[in-house]
Design a protein around this nucleic acid. Structure first.
Lengths: 146, 146
DNA sequence: CTAGGTGCAAAGCATTTGCCTCACT
DNA sequence: AGTGAGGCAAATGCTTTGCACCTAG
């Protein structure tokens, strides 16, 4: 993500936190920034690793609690893929995922057409739709080459 | 699932096992049947529970190993949702999921339109597409009522 | 000042592994 | 005899919880 884009995200983040009443702590800033700087949909462990150089005393519990809090308020989103650890994504607007079934890599996909697929009547009639996303399971070029 | 439909699935199952060279054991039959009889996308624990009356000595390890084996050969499929336990589904052909974000219920959705969405060029060009599915996150009627 | 946040350690579960036994070729 | 499968128990690993201390607002 570009520097200027990051700035916008960070300002948005601060604004949302104040709005909700979440204290802005150095740890929370660090966790949010770590997410912005990592487009691989890191899991809590990976975020923890990327923060420890700067905050050697931060604990995994804090990372878990913080991510959970952010996700609960929609500041970040949870991504679940074909493997079992939860991953997080700072992009909360509608987007889709390409998951390589071999190396488990997750790539974001922004696509106008997919954003406006026809919502089946069955869903519209009975449920309150929160969001939807399309998961593509693929073998990526690198894995295919092997 | 209707009785006659189940029969077809079971015969298919037996056929696939023989083809692959998997021994057909009472435990494996029981696990597969449990999956057929439960359209709630059960997790290993739930499958274990539904089998114990008939097979009191079966172990969780067997359930895990068996499900993993079935999934590896494409006999059943793994479903991952917005919560963290893995769930399984005997239906391996393309279908989509409605997940209630409150009660975590998962409902299968068969939909012609969704089966033929436009695959983005970005994917077609670089990757070998295995499958895709659409996840709808909703608040279901029961939860909305509360 | 004080509610909310952090960090540590322990607990809790889901899942996996190792290994021995058994059944069927 | 040898291979594949099952069952038990232990290990692993991710995630959550409880609690005492601390800090941002």
């Amino acid at each position: 993500m570009s520097q200027s884009n990051q700035q916008i995200y960070i300002e948005n983040f601060l604004h949302r936190c104040r709005e909700i009443g979440l204290n802005i702590t150095p740890q929370r800033m660090a966790i949010y920034k770590a997410l912005l700087n990592d487009d691989s949909h890191p899991n809590p462990e990976a975020i923890y690793q990327s923060i420890t150089p700067e905050y050697p005393t931060i604990s995994m519990a804090t990372v878990y609690k913080t991510l959970e809090t952010f996700a609960r308020y929609g500041i970040i989103s949870m991504v679940t893929t074909l493997h079992n650890t939860v991953r997080y994504d700072p992009i909360t607007k509608r987007h889709h995922h390409i998951v390589c079934v071999r190396c488990k890599k997750v790539i974001d996909l922004l696509d106008q057409d997919l954003d406006s697929i026809k919502i089946p009547n069955k869903i519209k009639k009975n449920n309150q739709l929160i969001n939807y996303s399309v998961h593509f399971n693929v073998i990526c070029p690198e894995c295919k080459g092997k």
